[in-house]
């Protein structure tokens, strides 16, 4: 059995160690109180989101940052590559034949942002590169249906369809002459 003296010494050492380590922790945290830390350490790290002072606005996000999607409908050829590859099936594309054989009228191009997981596969396979990620990250809405963003040119009426078919035939007739 160790002698009483050594156990008392061990006890006092334990108390001393405890108090010393508690104080070192306190004095490590103290400089933050007076903003004396070096480098960018001293300033607050958290930011109040709506305040304009927030440093992380959309423009200084990195270039590859994947935000909400945007499709430039003029360049979009309606090839539906993005619709096939999307894992969560949130892109719906519907085409109509345009006035000329080569032109396609993309009637409906909806992206359901509430189901999109921002994986970026659709942007990767888009040949005309019309579908891109913007830097916009504020995707809050009151109803999930408001999150369905549509880029389509709009559905066409049956009369327009017959009219365009007539124009196409006329053009083909001209070329065959």
């Amino acid at each position: 059995m160790e002698s009483v003296f050594t156990s008392v010494l061990k006890y006092l050492r334990e108390v001393y160690l405890g108090v010393k380590s508690i104080l070192t922790s306190c004095f490590t945290a103290l400089p933050y109180l007076f903003n004396r830390r070096s480098g960018d350490l001293h300033k607050e790290v958290t930011e109040q989101y709506p305040d304009p002072v927030s440093s992380r606005t959309a423009d200084d996000l990195p270039s590859r940052s994947r935000g909400l999607l945007f499709n430039d409908i003029d360049r979009c050829t309606g090839c539906k590559a993005c619709e096939e590859i999307c894992p969560t099936k949130c892109i719906t594309v519907e085409n109509e034949l345009g006035t000329e054989a080569s032109k396609v009228w993309v009637a409906v191009f909806d992206i359901d942002m509430s189901r999109c997981m921002f994986c970026g596969l659709c942007v990767e396979v888009c040949i005309p590169q019309s579908l891109v990620h913007t830097k916009e990250y504020e995707g809050a809405a009151y109803y999930p249906r408001d999150l369905v963003i549509s880029f389509g040119r709009g559905r066409i009426t049956p009369e327009q369809r017959t009219k365009w078919a007539a124009i196409r035939q006329a053009k083909e007739a001209e070329e065959t002459l």
Binding site: Y32, L33, K43, E44, T46, E47
Partner: peptide, 10 residues
């Protein structure tokens, strides 16, 4: 306020 300052918060 003091706890926020100690923890690098606002």
């Amino acid at each position: 306020k003091i706890s926020a300052d100690l923890q690098a918060r606002i």
